[in-house]
């Protein structure tokens, strides 16, 4: 018990690093994902092609490689980012690609009749997206987005490759130093609390949208 209490300060510090990456990625990747999802089905072909390429690139390579590239790859090109900044960049770009695909599919799943009804009532394109299409998209994309957010909680562990002391790296350091498995168990409990919170939050969000079908 004393050992656990002794571990807690450094593990909580690791947790804050993890949480910072988690929230920053969400806050930036969600709006970016919405915009990219719309761009992905834009009538402007070059934009559409670029987004297709972008999604292919960031969904098609391991996040781990992207992290290494943002730091070491850019370094060899003469761009030296702080390790944290490189991590944020890789996560935001990677998660935007996944979220863009979810939003694209969500937007495309809305019946054409909804656009036509809005159109004949005189709503312009922006009003149609804002008032008619996107509110319905949000309801439909909640379950897949919940999946991605839970993945994000766990993916944060990857930034250990940039020697950033997030939760799992702190745990590993203790395991190796103290020759005990306990820090891993504590880390696992922390992750379960985080993913459990996300799960409950999304359950609540989905119930908020239950008022219509």
């Amino acid at each position: 018990m004393d050992y656990i209490l002794m571990l807690l300060p450094s593990m909580l510090k690791g947790l804050t690093v993890t949480l910072k990456l988690f929230f920053l990625t969400l806050m930036l990747a969600l709006p970016l994902g919405i915009l990219m999802g719309m761009a992905r089905i834009s009538n402007f072909k070059p934009l559409k092609w670029f987004m297709e390429f972008y999604v292919w690139l960031f969904r098609g390579t391991p996040l781990l490689l992207q992290l290494l590239f943002m730091y070491f790859g850019l370094m060899t090109l003469g761009i030296l980012l702080e390790r944290e900044v490189a991590a944020y960049l890789a996560f935001v770009l990677n998660y935007s690609a996944y979220l863009a695909e979810i939003f694209r599919a969500g937007i495309q799943s809305i019946d054409r009749g909804q656009y036509e009804a809005a159109d004949v009532l005189g709503l312009n394109r922006f009003q149609t997206m804002k008032n008619i299409v996107m509110p319905q998209v949000f309801k439909r994309v909640l379950p897949p987005i919940g999946n991605e957010v839970i993945n994000l909680v766990k993916d944060t562990a990857l930034i250990y490759v940039l020697a950033i002391s997030e939760l799992s790296r702190v745990a590993r350091t203790h395991v190796m130093r103290d020759d005990t498995f306990v820090p891993f168990i504590i880390a696992a409990i922390f992750y379960l609390i985080m993913t459990g919170t996300v799960q409950q939050f999304f359950k609540w969000l989905e119930s908020r949208f239950d008022y219509y079908r």
């Binding site: 005189g122 709503l123 008032n131 219509y212």
Partner: peptide, 25 residues
């Protein structure tokens, strides 16, 4: 225009369906 499949806005109440366009447009 009235459509074969109604195309009401499912996330809006009946009243909101009627009020939306007059207010926005």
């Amino acid at each position: 225009m009235v459509f074969q499949n109604f195309n009401l806005f499912p996330h809006k109440s009946v009243l909101e369906n009627l009020m939306l366009a007059p207010m926005l447009v």
